[in-house]
Design a protein around this nucleic acid. Structure first.
Length: 890
RNA sequence: GCGCGGUUAGCUCAGCGGUAGAGCACUACCUUGACACGGUAGGGGUCCCUGGUUCAAGUCCAGGACCGCGCACCA
């Protein structure tokens, strides 16, 4: 810090330190350390993704926890990595290859060639987000970076599949699944987003058939549907068995219009007689509920919609080839033309959308692999009993509800990018081979074409990244992990499944605590999205304001579990705060002198004692907030302490001492400053890793410290402990100092206010006269002089001011602003009378309470005492002001 | 339909049983030797509504209103 710029310039500083940290591998975890373990696994971002504000929030929290724990002398492992994000990555790669003209469909390349290209893509773009996390200051153990498709990790995934298969928990079957007609793959229930949508409800008439098979001209049933195109695959109309209206219909047959097909009327409990007409068209192959009915009644499963969402041959030649949405319109029109349309109503209902492709999900009947969830009981109890704690706690309720209602997980995906299912089918016998090793005679077998859901690999993340299934040193030391930090949007996708995997495969919970962040929205409360273009680029923000500023701004406004409305103003605040810190330290630097000299108790001023006590309070509050995961609170205390206490008051007051020509006085002040700053930097470090590292070294606070306690990096310095009783005794710190200084600063504020009342510019030095209640030292006088910008400051215990002299009253005495020529008795009387009114109001408020016998009898003594004190203070104040008013009258 | 949040200063949000807070914005003054990414002093609030518990209620309880989010196979 030889040349100190007036404004903090984060770019070069941050670049320098993140290189320093990674070159020295400072954050490499040592499994054989004797220190207690603290561990987090990163929620692996998509390998081809880029940093978003959500990542910034999430990873800053993890970094704060990791750095805080390191300073508390834990052996910290923060394990980073990325996941392969099956669908997302595959579609990105496909799009890229199409744009490059390499292929128009992946079948053009074939599986092997395509995967080669995908790996090339991953190698090229896969490191970006990791680089970005480094820029953010994340103190991960980068030597342990993992990827869900690493060889070792892939083997874990396959091993788990094989084991669960042989345990009977994984099975294959033809089921109705959520099908994405764009990605052409099955999805799990969790990947379907239900969206409320305004649609229409078409009411169709299906004519009854006479005994001779001809359609009746009078009798028909009316069915309602939001999806007319599915009627082409109808196989029945169902009514509730107890519905008196339709008893006579049961067993009869209907004509399915357009298809000219006979379909039966059947009875099924599922039908709600209260809804619509009480008659339901049944399309067993294209609706999950109808599928169940189809099974119960042994109906045919007529498929009319192909996997790509277009109508197939069975839909009839008029509709074949139409997209389902076009077919919807066409069918409805045709029905109307042919007189089968009863009416159309507008109708609001929920439509399931593909999370990835943003198109409506198509229920689709196909062969898929399913997992019956393991260790459900243990996983449920762990959260119910508090063995795993959620912050905020309320998410436990969602979790438990989900756990109690889970259905088997569809784990197969019709993709190429991912972990291929380790199952082979014999070409002739059809025999199935499920094993880590392929069959000995591969020419006779064909491997299952599907890959596994990405979450089927990431649910192993907490232990597969640590060397499982081997019982590695790392696993022994760091599993279960301590904290998991993630968004509630992946509670079911990831958190719940990790807990099950932990119990099933490790016999132990994967983490002790789960912290759920809020969701970052824009300043209008909308979710960040690419299409809205309301998602700022964190890298641009880092470039403009610095990573520390971004971290602090986000953390300061991110309360536990509440969504955060992002505004660039927050980052600006962070930048301003860093600049303030920079200049506070710059001021110290400009003073020169020995670094961290000995503090001499006998030279401590009241301001010194005050700031030490405020520091003590800050240490307690910040430590407590961090231990309770209340990061915004910790950030706010840091802000208050540094800005409103240290800079606003202590630095200003210390200027009186620093002017001193007595070396001991000056040096002692510097020693206190160093003590406070070296603590403050450490308290700030988890939030602001870069600037604190820079200042720690720049001010020389690392000098003489052992390498693992702050010599090399502030990241290893000891976390500040509250000042203990011995310390307070030796340095003579007690509450009376705090009270005296608070009263002093209060008087200064009032004194400055007088300037304003009398329109004296704040930079104009002016005469004040102070009439103290008790004798004050020369030092206190000089502090008051500096704080008031007084010249001169006269201390006069016997002051008898001329009538009308502006004055303020305080607990330590009276302060006068004897302005020649400006004395205005009437103005001063008015001013004091306004004050008097305010005081009277307060007295009345307190007195009312104290006069209430219920209050005096039932309130605790401490509260009573506090009220009495308050009343006393106000009354004293009243007397002072009253006396001043009276003095004006004579 | 069930569940979960939110409603406090113009804006964004803390506070969750004992004198209403912060940042931004606003007003006035100030380029005074750390900092204009700044300083000083101000203005600004029936803490959504209605009941209840309590000596005491933004703060706890019940009901309601309005926003938002989950979960749920009503065609």
């Amino acid at each position: 810090m030889s040349e100190i710029p007036k404004a903090y310039e984060p770019q070069s500083v941050e670049e320098r330190w993140h290189q320093y940290w990674s070159e020295q591998n400072l954050f490499q975890a040592n499994p054989s350390s004797a220190k207690p373990a603290y561990s987090i696994v990163i929620p692996p971002p998509n390998v081809t993704g880029v940093l978003t504000l959500g990542h910034v929030l999430n990873n800053t929290i993890q970094d704060v926890l990791a750095r805080f724990s390191r300073m508390k002398r834990f052996e910290v492992l923060w394990l980073p990595g990325t996941d392969h994000a099956g669908i997302a990555t595959q579609s990105v790669v496909e799009k890229h290859l199409r744009q490059q003209g390499v292929m128009s469909h992946r079948d053009d390349l074939g599986r092997e060639k395509f995967l080669e290209k995908a790996w090339e893509w991953k190698e090229k773009h896969g490191g970006i987000i990791i680089q970005q996390l480094k820029k953010l200051g994340c103190s991960c153990d980068w030597t342990r970076e993992r990827f869900t498709m690493d060889d070792h990790y892939s083997r874990c995934v396959q091993k788990v599949f094989v084991d669960l298969y042989h345990k009977g928990l994984i099975y294959r079957g033809k089921r109705m699944v959520n099908w994405c007609p764009v990605s052409l793959t099955a999805l799990s229930d969790e990947e379907v987003i239900m969206t409320e949508e305004k649609g229409q409800l078409w009411h169709f008439r299906y004519p009854c058939l006479n005994d001779d098979g001809t359609p009746s001209s009078e009798e028909h049933v009316v069915v309602a549907t939001t999806r007319p195109e599915t009627m082409l695959g109808d196989e029945a109309v169902a009514v509730n068995p107890n519905d008196p209206r339709y008893q006579s219909l049961i067993g009869r047959e209907l004509l399915l219009p357009l298809q000219n097909k006979r379909i039966p009327v059947i009875r099924d409990e599922l039908v709600d007689p209260e809804f619509g007409t009480g008659c339901v068209k049944v399309t067993p192959a294209h609706d999950p509920a109808d599928y169940e009915i189809g099974l119960r009644h042994d109906l045919p499963f007529t498929v009319v919609i192909a996997p790509d969402g277009r109508m197939n041959h069975a839909a009839g030649e008029d509709f074949e080839g139409l997209d389902r949405m076009e077919a919807r319109k066409a069918v409805a029109e045709r029905m109307e033309e042919e007189g089968y349309l009863e009416k159309v109503e507008s109708y609001t209902h929920n439509v399931g959308y593909s999370e990835r492709s943003h198109v409506p999900i198509e229920p689709y009947l196909s062969e898929q692999w399913f997992l019956r969830y393991p260790a459900v009981r243990e996983a449920t109890e762990a959260v119910a009993d508090g063995k795993i704690r959620f912050f905020p706690e309320r998410w436990a309720k969602s979790y438990l509800h989900w756990m109690e209602n889970i259905r088997d997980w569809c784990i197969s995906r019709q993709l190429w990018w991912g972990h291929r299912i380790p199952v082979w089918y014999h070409r002739e016998t059809g025999e199935m081979h499920c094993d880590l090793e392929p069959p000995k005679d591969p020419e006779n077998w064909e491997q299952d074409a599907d890959v596994l859901d990405t979450w089927f690999s990431s649910w192993l993340w907490p232990f597969a990244t640590m060397g499982w299934p081997e019982q590695t040193e790392t696993l022994r030391k760091f599993y279960p992990t301590t904290d998991l930090v993630t968004g509630p949007d992946i509670l079911f996708f990831w958190v719940a499944r990790m807990i099950m995997a932990g119990y099933e495969l490790m016999g132990e919970r994967p983490f002790h605590n789960v912290y759920f962040t809020g969701i970052i929205r824009d300043k209008h409360g909308r979710k960040m999205s690419k299409s809205l273009g309301n998602s700022p680029d964190p890298l641009a923000l880092i470039e403009q304001y610095g990573a520390d500023a971004l971290r602090f701004g986000v953390m300061r406004s991110a309360p536990l579990g509440q969504d955060l409305l992002f505004d660039e103003k927050h980052v600006e605040l962070g930048r301003n705060f860093c600049n303030k810190l920079w200049n506070a330290c710059r001021f110290r630097q400009l003073q020169g002198g020995e670094t961290e000299g000995e503090i001499s108790p006998s030279h401590l001023t009241s301001d010194d004692k005050w700031i030490l006590l405020r520091l003590d309070t800050a240490i307690r509050e910040i430590t407590d907030a961090l231990e309770g995961y209340r990061f915004n609170e910790a950030a706010q205390v840091l802000y208050r302490f540094l800005w409103s206490e240290y800079c606003d008051w202590y630095i200003e007051a210390s200027k009186a001492l620093l002017q001193s020509t007595v070396a001991e006085v000056r040096n002692n002040s510097l020693a206190v400053t160093d003590f406070v700053l070296s603590h403050a930097l450490r308290l700030l470090h988890p939030f602001l890793p870069f600037i604190t590292e820079e200042l720690w070294h720049g001010l020389g606070y690392n000098n003489g410290l052992p390498s693992d306690q702050g010599g090399t990096t502030i990241g290893f310095a000891n976390w500040p402990k509250p000042l203990d009783d011995d310390f307070k005794q030796v340095y003579g710190l007690d509450e009376s100092d705090e009270r005296f200084v608070a009263a002093k600063y209060d008087m200064v504020t009032k004194g400055r206010n007088l300037r304003r009342e009398y329109k004296i510019p704040s930079n104009q030095r002016i005469r004040y006269v102070f009439k103290p209640n008790a004798p004050i030292s020369e030092h206190e006088k000089s502090v008051l002089k500096v704080l008031l910008n007084a010249e001169p400051l006269e201390v006069s215990p016997d002051m008898q001011p001329p009538k009308g002299t502006p004055q303020v009253l305080s607990q330590i005495g009276e302060l006068y602003l004897p302005v020649e020529g400006l004395i205005d008795v009437e103005a001063e009387t008015n001013r004091l009378n306004r004050e008097l009114e305010k005081v009277e109001l307060e007295i009345e408020k307190v007195q009312t309470k104290l006069n209430n016998p219920n209050f005096t009898q039932k309130a605790p003594e401490a509260v009573l005492e506090e009220h009495r004190q308050r009343l006393h203070d106000w009354q004293e104040r009243y007397n002072q002001v009253k006396a001043a008013v009276d003095a004006l009258k004579h």
